[in-house]
Design a protein around this nucleic acid. Sequence first.
DNA 1: GTGAGATTCAAACTTTTGTTTCAGACTGTC
DNA 2: GACAGTCTGAAACAAAAGTTTGAATCTCAC
Lengths: 236, 236
Amino acid sequence: MFLSQQSRRQTHRVSAPRAAASTREKLVEAAGHVFAEHGYQATTVREIVKRSGANIAAVNYHFGDKLGLYTEVLQQSVRAARVDAINRALDQNAPPEDILRAVIRARLQSVAEPNLPDWHFRIMVHELVQPTPALSRVVNEVSRPLYKRLLELIGGIIDLPPKDEKTRLCAHSVMGQILVYVLAGPLLKQLWPELEMTPEQVDRIAEHIWDFSLAYLRQANSGDRRAIVSSRRGEK
Amino acid sequence: MFLSQQSRRQTHRVSAPRAAASTREKLVEAAGHVFAEHGYQATTVREIVKRSGANIAAVNYHFGDKLGLYTEVLQQSVRAARVDAINRALDQNAPPEDILRAVIRARLQSVAEPNLPDWHFRIMVHELVQPTPALSRVVNEVSRPLYKRLLELIGGIIDLPPKDEKTRLCAHSVMGQILVYVLAGPLLKQLWPELEMTPEQVDRIAEHIWDFSLAYLRQANSGDRRAIVSSRRGEK
DNA sequence: GTGAGATTCAAACTTTTGTTTCAGACTGTC
DNA sequence: GACAGTCTGAAACAAAAGTTTGAATCTCAC
């Protein structure tokens, strides 16, 4: 049963990719939003089909089962995240500090537009908090390269090897500042009702994170590193 | 039905709090771990009772329903978090910079000991990512005061009002750096296998976050603030 | 020790949710 | 215009999970 549907799906995608793809695409689109909002477990296929306007059988017809649909959504997220503005920012030829600034902006900006496929990232976040069965591997495929490049970038700024502990801690500090807006968005909005994630506000936040981070990174780079630490106590 | 059980529970707690509390306590203990690991939706009461050794009816008998048990766990988390080391750190009489350092350490250290009731915080994190019905209010009760005090603390360091946008952004920067270890712990461990959250390592991480943050905060405090910004571009 | 209430237990019940079925509509081909 | 393959729709099915039941056991006051 399952296999025949899978093959049918394959046949479908090859033979009639234009018109019939509509329902399929609508499902992925709706599923992306719902999964991003509730996570995998808390999402029901009935909510997805209701939102997409499709019939409940469509999920199993096109994707085999709920996990198949989720896998498709996740793969699209990975693909989208990979070719995303982040890599474009990382690829540009510019001083490392400017690249870092562009990376922060790129990552944060996608939070501002809830209409557009921002759920790509939110889904990753859910994965991160509670991994689902078959896809920590998928997340890893996109997370590890990005992490690696971020380490290289920051290592370049503070003049340390990418794998140095200090480089990693700095990378985590930058990541954390961004993640808190993606993760704790709803909470922050409760604590700070005036917070509206307009493009202008997001720009200001990105600028702040850049300022905040560079205050340390520049200091760590300029000349003798131990001076910073030893101003407080001896280095380990 | 529900009310009669509730009243029975109340009676129970008053009349025989010692021996019979055992099952109840075991349930809360087990539920805390399971909820913290999987979140509310993905947790089954059967898993909880299996882990606690209790009968499946015990949950409904003692707490009315699954949400009642979860609420109890959450309230204990709130209570635990409230009297936690964080407030002790905030209450001490010391320079704001040292208090900040103590707060960072206190919050990060609880991550290091997974045996102890660390799930208090992890549950909050799950709440934060996907709020459950009846308790964003509860989270709010503990989050808002802590947030407020953090704003005052950081406002004190950079010499700005607590509600100033810049103060808030700085607070979020500090929060984010801590949260990333709580949230992304599993992922970070995959990306950086050598990462072991030993007490020593946690101390080093806490020191880094403090250094990293203070690099900006001190700079922001010292004299004219606009100098920092205008070194890049004009202030808004 | 007896009785009233509190607690536990195994089993059954109800709801939710993922999945399947199969009839019918659509689409493009000969 | 008939056919094959593709897709959709409403309903039914099955498994999982939350909840309830009622009898049995325990606790403790009298």
